[in-house]
């Protein structure tokens, strides 16, 4: 049942992402999403991937987010209808709590295929698949250059002019 409860918290986080009218609460939804995401992966035996997921979400994406939102702050941030989201979470939680007896179902848990992958996957990625790392770096560089070029048009309020029609 632990897995299902974490899935419900993930649902709450992801619903918050698209329900909120302000990007602040969307970022909060991403934070709420990443914690159970890493939890459920580590619960099923993986160690490397949840660490990387958590690092990239919290340490990467959400560090960049306050810097960019400080440029264009919003005066009254709000969520569309928080009652609906909480109601949805309570509904699904009631289904989960009524379906399971034990908090941790030890006999039904399956030992997942992700265990032990850190011994094989990441090593191969840097060793014989090194070209892929360089290709990935190049793609990220191109994406950065493209994003900087396009957002330079913000000072002429081009993208903002389109999305506020």
């Amino acid at each position: 049942m632990v897995v299902y409860v974490t899935l419900i918290v993930m649902l709450f986080g992801s619903t918050l992402v698209f329900y909120s009218l302000s990007p602040y609460y969307s970022a909060l939804g991403l934070v709420v999403f990443s914690v159970p995401g890493s939890f459920v992966l580590s619960f099923l035996g993986s160690s490397f991937v949840p660490i990387v997921l958590f690092l990239v979400y919290i340490g990467g994406m959400l560090v960049v987010f306050p810097y960019s939102s400080a440029i264009s702050p919003e005066r009254f941030p709000s969520v569309n209808n928080l009652g609906e989201v909480v109601g949805l979470v309570f509904l699904f939680s009631s289904w989960v709590f009524m379906s399971f007896d034990n908090f941790q179902d030890l006999k039904n848990i399956f030992h997942c295929f992700v265990s032990g992958e850190s011994l094989v996957g990441s090593n191969t990625f840097y060793n014989s698949g090194g070209v892929l790392v360089i290709l990935g770096v190049f793609v990220l560089l191109v994406a950065l250059v493209g994003a900087l070029i396009i957002s330079r048009g913000i000072e002429s309020t081009i993208i903002r002019a389109i999305w506020l029609w």
Partner: peptide
Amino acid sequence: LELSTLALVPILCSGFSPRNVE
């Protein structure tokens, strides 16, 4: 495919007029 799309996107909004960017 993604590389060619990503690199073409800043080329396409060349004049930064709303029509180009759209």
